[in-house]
């Protein structure tokens, strides 16, 4: 259980760091959002003080000392109040995020499962059959890994979407003809619209897993316990999965955090290109319309989601590696 507590402690610190960064960035870099907005609006005459006042109230800007603001900020968060969105005024930020979140969560989790499953599976076989045709394909993953998400999304959209017309060009489902609900039409439409965004994420994301798993397999296969499993006359599949791959996957799991970071970045780019109504798309819109409360709320929620995913993976790691359970 020491392991669990240590991890919980770590993520508490990470969460606090994310909250604090979110609080500090706007205040350290530019003073406050009201100044930025006013500097954009400013034409010939200075804005009337009432206008500034109204904006300050809306953004919760105050002239209190930083630490007073900090605690006020934390108190607000504790009550779940993320402020009011400017773009979707008067909708609270929480509501806007609540509408975007399910799309992103669905897309990311499905794409992530496919990426990890396929990457680890193929990497395992490539490493096991060193020198086979599959292993020979490994160098091409280098190219896949270096493709920018944004560009890949554009290409897929251009060739598979616009060019061949196989897939719809944007949105999460056919807004004009299908109503949201648990109907075959709706689900089919969602899958169809989600296919290209998911494909973008899988293609760019898979290379890292494939290569990492393949190289760890090669290293692991020289271990005595794999040779011994062969000496025991176990079936090759059993040796590959339970002896080689079970051990080879562990270092890849620890690299999950970094991979997830890239994945979330790709998610934002993908959502923008496909106008997919998730949090990444919302984030960019918030940036475009200087919707600071929404921007900060989104960053916060993305951070929390990523931290939660990492925590889950750490728990999983504890399950598949008996050594960390005890040692803690």
């Amino acid at each position: 259980m020491a392991y669990l507590w240590r991890k919980l402690g770590f993520y508490a610190v990470a969460l606090w760091a994310a909250l604090t960064i979110n609080f500090l960035i706007p205040r350290l870099i530019r003073g406050n959002p009201v100044d930025i907005i006013l500097s954009r609006f400013q034409t010939r005459q200075p804005p009337p003080p009432e206008f500034r006042k109204a904006l300050e109230v809306m953004f919760g800007v105050s002239h209190d000392p930083l630490w007073v603001q900090y605690f006020a900020y934390l108190r607000q968060l504790a009550t779940g109040n993320l402020g009011t969105s400017v773009t979707y005024y008067p909708a609270p930020v929480g509501t806007v995020i609540g509408q975007a979140m399910p799309w992103t969560l669905g897309l990311v989790s499905i794409a992530l499962l496919i990426t990890v499953g396929l990457g680890v599976g193929l990497g395992m076989v490539a490493g096991w059959r060193r020198g086979s045709w599959l292993d020979g394909l490994i160098p091409t993953t280098t190219f896949l890994a270096a493709i920018p998400y944004f560009w890949l999304a554009l290409l897929l959209l251009f060739f598979l979407g616009a060019g061949l017309g196989w897939f719809p060009l944007n949105g999460a489902y056919d807004y004009a003809h299908v109503r949201m609900g648990f109907t075959g039409d709706f689900i089919g439409s969602v899958l169809c619209h989600g296919a290209l965004p998911a494909l973008t994420l899988v293609i760019s994301g898979i290379a890292g897993w494939l290569l990492g798993m393949r190289n760890m397999m090669v290293s692991t296969m020289a271990e005595d316990y794999v040779v011994m499993a062969q000496a025991k006359g176990l079936r090759p599949r059993r040796v590959m999965v339970a002896y080689a791959a079970r051990n080879a996957v562990l270092p890849n799991v620890t690299g999950f955090a970094i991979m997830l970071g890239f994945f979330v970045g790709g998610q934002v780019a993908t959502e923008v290109v496909f106008s997919y109504p998730g949090v990444g798309f919302a984030l960019l819109q918030a940036v475009g319309s200087a919707d600071y409360p929404l921007m900060q709320g989104l960053f916060l929620i993305i951070s929390v989601a990523v931290l939660a995913a990492n925590f889950l993976v750490d728990l999983l790691y504890g399950l598949i590696d008996p050594r960390v359970r005890k040692a803690g």
Binding site: E223, D224, M228, A229, A242, P322
Partner: peptide, 14 residues
């Protein structure tokens, strides 16, 4: 066969 290093001959995760 009994392997050289007992530390490495047993699968650490099983």
């Amino acid at each position: 066969m009994v392997f050289q290093s007992a530390m490495n001959a047993l699968n650490p995760v099983l």
